[in-house]
Amino acid sequence: SSGGSSILDRAVIEHNLLSASKLYNNITFEELGALLEIPAAKAEKIASQMITEGRMNGFIDQIDGIVHFETR
Protein backbone atom coordinates (compact mmCIF):
# COMPACT_ATOMS: atom_id res chain seq x y z
CA SER A 1 0.00 0.00 0.00
CA SER A 2 1.24 3.49 -0.79
CA GLY A 3 -0.12 5.50 2.13
CA GLY A 4 1.31 3.58 5.05
CA SER A 5 0.56 0.10 6.21
CA SER A 6 -2.37 -2.13 5.35
CA ILE A 7 -4.85 -3.40 7.92
CA LEU A 8 -2.96 -6.71 8.02
CA ASP A 9 0.40 -5.00 8.57
CA ARG A 10 -1.16 -2.98 11.35
CA ALA A 11 -2.64 -6.10 12.99
CA VAL A 12 0.75 -7.84 12.85
CA ILE A 13 2.50 -4.79 14.34
CA GLU A 14 -0.08 -4.57 17.15
CA HIS A 15 0.23 -8.30 17.86
CA ASN A 16 4.02 -8.02 18.03
CA LEU A 17 3.77 -4.94 20.22
CA LEU A 18 1.55 -6.83 22.67
CA SER A 19 4.03 -9.72 22.65
CA ALA A 20 6.87 -7.27 23.37
CA SER A 21 4.85 -5.81 26.26
CA LYS A 22 4.89 -9.25 27.90
CA LEU A 23 8.65 -9.71 27.41
CA TYR A 24 9.92 -6.28 28.41
CA ASN A 25 9.31 -4.01 31.38
CA ASN A 26 10.30 -1.06 29.24
CA ILE A 27 11.86 -0.43 25.86
CA THR A 28 13.05 2.62 23.92
CA PHE A 29 11.18 3.67 20.79
CA GLU A 30 14.38 2.98 18.82
CA GLU A 31 14.55 -0.62 20.10
CA LEU A 32 10.82 -1.11 19.69
CA GLY A 33 10.94 0.19 16.13
CA ALA A 34 13.85 -2.13 15.32
CA LEU A 35 11.97 -5.05 16.86
CA LEU A 36 8.80 -4.29 14.88
CA GLU A 37 10.75 -3.29 11.74
CA ILE A 38 9.10 0.14 11.62
CA PRO A 39 10.41 3.67 12.28
CA ALA A 40 10.72 4.64 15.95
CA ALA A 41 8.17 7.46 15.54
CA LYS A 42 5.60 5.02 14.17
CA ALA A 43 6.28 2.57 17.01
CA GLU A 44 5.66 5.41 19.47
CA LYS A 45 2.45 6.45 17.73
CA ILE A 46 1.00 2.93 17.64
CA ALA A 47 2.01 2.16 21.24
CA SER A 48 0.50 5.46 22.39
CA GLN A 49 -2.74 4.74 20.54
CA MET A 50 -3.04 1.22 21.96
CA ILE A 51 -2.44 2.47 25.51
CA THR A 52 -4.98 5.29 25.05
CA GLU A 53 -7.57 2.83 23.70
CA GLY A 54 -6.98 0.53 26.68
CA ARG A 55 -5.71 -2.32 24.52
CA MET A 56 -2.30 -2.32 26.17
CA ASN A 57 -1.25 -1.39 29.70
CA GLY A 58 1.57 1.06 30.09
CA PHE A 59 2.67 4.63 29.75
CA ILE A 60 5.01 6.62 27.57
CA ASP A 61 7.96 8.66 28.78
CA GLN A 62 8.41 11.12 25.93
CA ILE A 63 11.39 12.85 27.51
CA ASP A 64 13.48 9.67 27.57
CA GLY A 65 11.71 8.08 24.59
CA ILE A 66 10.68 4.95 26.46
CA VAL A 67 7.52 2.86 26.65
CA HIS A 68 6.96 1.42 30.12
CA PHE A 69 4.74 -1.65 30.01
CA GLU A 70 2.59 -2.49 33.01
CA THR A 71 1.53 -6.07 33.59
CA ARG A 72 -2.09 -6.67 34.47
Rank of each mutant, 00 (worst) to 15 (best):
S6D: 14
V67S: 02
R72K: 12
Q62K: 14
K22G: 05
A20L: 15
N16Q: 11
A34E: 09
L8T: 11
N26P: 06
V12G: 08
A34V: 11
H15V: 09
D61T: 07
A47K: 00
S19F: 09
S2Q: 12
G3N: 12
I7H: 11
D9A: 06
A41M: 08
I63Q: 10
L8Q: 11
I38K: 00
T52R: 14
H15P: 04
I51E: 00
S48K: 12
D9I: 06
T52S: 14
G58D: 01
S5T: 13
A20I: 15
S5Q: 13
R10Y: 13
V12N: 09
F59Q: 06
E37Y: 07
F29G: 01
A47M: 06
S6K: 10
H68T: 05
E44A: 15
E70F: 14
E70T: 08
A34Q: 10
F29L: 11
M56E: 01
A43Q: 00
I51Q: 03
I7D: 14
L18N: 04
A43M: 04
A34N: 09
D9R: 04
T71R: 11
K45E: 15
D9Y: 05
A47G: 02
A34W: 09
L35A: 04
T28S: 12
A40W: 10
G33F: 02
S19Q: 14
E44L: 15
M56L: 15
E53N: 07
M50I: 03
S1E: 13
E14R: 04
V67M: 09
A40K: 07
P39C: 05
E53C: 07
S2M: 09
F69E: 01
G33H: 02
S2I: 11
S5A: 13
L18I: 09
I13R: 02
L23N: 08
I13Q: 04
D9K: 05
H15K: 14
T28H: 03
D9P: 08
L36I: 03
H15Q: 14
I63N: 09
A34F: 10
Q49G: 05
M50E: 01
P39Q: 05
H15Y: 12
F69T: 02
N16S: 08
R72P: 12
L23V: 11
G4I: 12
I27Q: 02
N16R: 15
R55S: 05
I7Q: 12
A43Y: 02
T28D: 03
L18W: 05
L17E: 01
H68A: 04
N26Y: 15
N26R: 14
D64I: 11
S5M: 08
I7A: 14
E44V: 15
P39W: 04
E14S: 03
V12T: 13
L8N: 11
L17H: 01
I51L: 07
T71P: 12
A40Q: 06
L35W: 07
L8F: 14
S6T: 12
G54H: 06
Y24I: 05
A20C: 08
A11F: 10
A34C: 08
N25P: 08
K45S: 13
R55W: 05
S48A: 13
K22W: 08
I60R: 01
D9E: 10
Y24R: 06
G54A: 04
F59A: 05
G65N: 07
S1Y: 03
E44Y: 14
Q62A: 11
A41F: 09
F59N: 05
A40Y: 05
N57S: 12
R55K: 10
N26T: 13
L17N: 02
L35I: 09
I60T: 03
A41C: 07
Y24D: 01
S19A: 15
E14T: 04
M56R: 00
D61N: 13
K45V: 10
L18K: 05
R10K: 09
E44M: 15
L23F: 09
I51K: 01
M50Y: 03
I38V: 07
G4Y: 03
T52E: 14
I7N: 13
V67N: 01
R72G: 10
L35S: 02
S5N: 12
S2E: 14
N57I: 11
K22Y: 08
G65M: 07
T52I: 12
K45P: 02
E30F: 09
N25C: 11
L32G: 01
R72M: 10
S48D: 07
Q62V: 14
G4F: 04
L36C: 04
L17P: 01
F29P: 01
G33K: 02
G58V: 02
F69H: 01
E31R: 08
H68Q: 05
V12L: 11
G65A: 06
F69Y: 02
I38C: 04
V67D: 00
A40I: 06
T52W: 10
S5C: 11
A20F: 15
T52D: 12
I51M: 06
K45T: 11
G33P: 00
H68D: 04
E31S: 07
L8H: 11
K42E: 15
E31C: 10
M50G: 01
E30T: 09
I60M: 04
L32R: 00
I46S: 02
G3A: 11
I51R: 01
N57E: 10
N26C: 15
P39D: 10
M56K: 01
F59V: 08
R72V: 10
Q49R: 08
A20M: 12
G58R: 01
M50H: 01
L17K: 00
I27T: 03
F69G: 02
L35Y: 08
M56V: 10
L36T: 01
I63G: 08
E44S: 12
S1P: 12
K42W: 15
I63V: 13
E14M: 07
G65H: 09
I66C: 06
R55F: 05
V12A: 11
I63D: 09
S21R: 03
S19W: 14
L17S: 01
A47F: 05
D61K: 05
A41N: 09
R55D: 02
I46K: 01
G33M: 03
A43H: 00
F59P: 00
E14Q: 04
K22H: 07
E53G: 06
G65P: 04
D61Q: 05
L23K: 11
I7E: 12
I7V: 13
Q49D: 13
A11P: 06
I27G: 00
R72I: 09
L35G: 00
